[in-house]
Design a binder for these strands. Sequence first.
DNA 1: ACCTGAACACCGTTCAAGT
DNA 2: ACCTGAACACCGTTCAAGT
Lengths: 204, 204
Amino acid sequence: MPPAARERNRRGEGERLREDIIEAATALMERAGCDEGLTLRGTARAVGVSPQAMYLHFDDLTTLVLAVLGRCHALMSSVMEAAAAEWDDPVERVLARGRAYITWGMANPGLYQVMYEGRVQAVHEPGEVPPGRKVLWAVRDDVTAAMASGRIPEGDAGLIAVQLWALVHGLVSLRANKPHFPWPDPLALADAGGRRIMGVGAGS
Amino acid sequence: MPPAARERNRRGEGERLREDIIEAATALMERAGCDEGLTLRGTARAVGVSPQAMYLHFDDLTTLVLAVLGRCHALMSSVMEAAAAEWDDPVERVLARGRAYITWGMANPGLYQVMYEGRVQAVHEPGEVPPGRKVLWAVRDDVTAAMASGRIPEGDAGLIAVQLWALVHGLVSLRANKPHFPWPDPLALADAGGRRIMGVGAGS
DNA sequence: ACCTGAACACCGTTCAAGT
DNA sequence: ACCTGAACACCGTTCAAGT
């Protein structure tokens, strides 16, 4: 098919092309299911512009991927925090975040793969705290609160938060990459595993 | 550099080229750290043969990757079972397999990525049980034995085995893909998480 | 039986040029 | 200020041919 020609932007409208590029790249990345799916030339075709025009807004393919990833991480984190906000009990807040993590990852397997399994690494300023880190800290704080109230046994809340992260990432990642395995319901699995890691119901 | 020319094989020595190709492909896959690192042409150059010669032994790039993956899965599984064989206690056998899994994954990040995060899916005959599945079953059986002896609380051993798999895969995968995060010792993390998931030390 | 030369359609990226 | 034409060195894959 001939590339849908795009009418030339006027002065000051260069920003619009940048937005269009990010949007098209996100769609391509999600559809293809991996960073392999995202090509500079393919994105240019989708936007209706020459491959070289990409370099007016992005230094290279990596920079474009980073722009897409920034949006994804912010979005995913906000979804997780929104899920946590519906509960008062710190244990339920932690489990709700885990379910939101898995739900988002399963709904966006292509983007998730680039976010958590791709070679493009998000780079942050020295003082900047990435959104994912904030969520991890929130989990750690909720675990600490649950310990303080005697809801779960004492332990190292930071280590538990990392174990919970590994569990949910492991479930999303394995499910996506080993589709032939007879997976049990990942949400139930994450809830059960999360409770076990936190020690919910373990004899005090 | 000029491709190191390889002397032509005699009749019946075509098998040797096949072996050389798989070996070179494994090295390239490990060095590059991802399937992206493995190119048909690059492997051909490393072996000292023309790109077209690859098609004498492999239908396409995917088939070559599958040949490498078959060896990797068999090797990793045998390492895990060897680690388990050093213990009598079923709980310790499970934890030993987890440590072996993580140790292998961290020692071979490039191969691990292709095995568990790549788009190339290993295909098995209807009746064939892949080596990784056998290890998972062995874990499930050890968990069952630990329950039967009262070492850990009762529960669904199959679900616990999957949770343990997700935990160790999650640790290896996240560690490889988020190198900027201040990771605690993954072996200690896997041991602690594994004990919690199995309910070791939980009040009976 | 074993392997290569030449070609095709892709890719990221660069440089000079056009409006 | 905004964008493209033409080119370079890569890639997987195919087809016809060489020893």
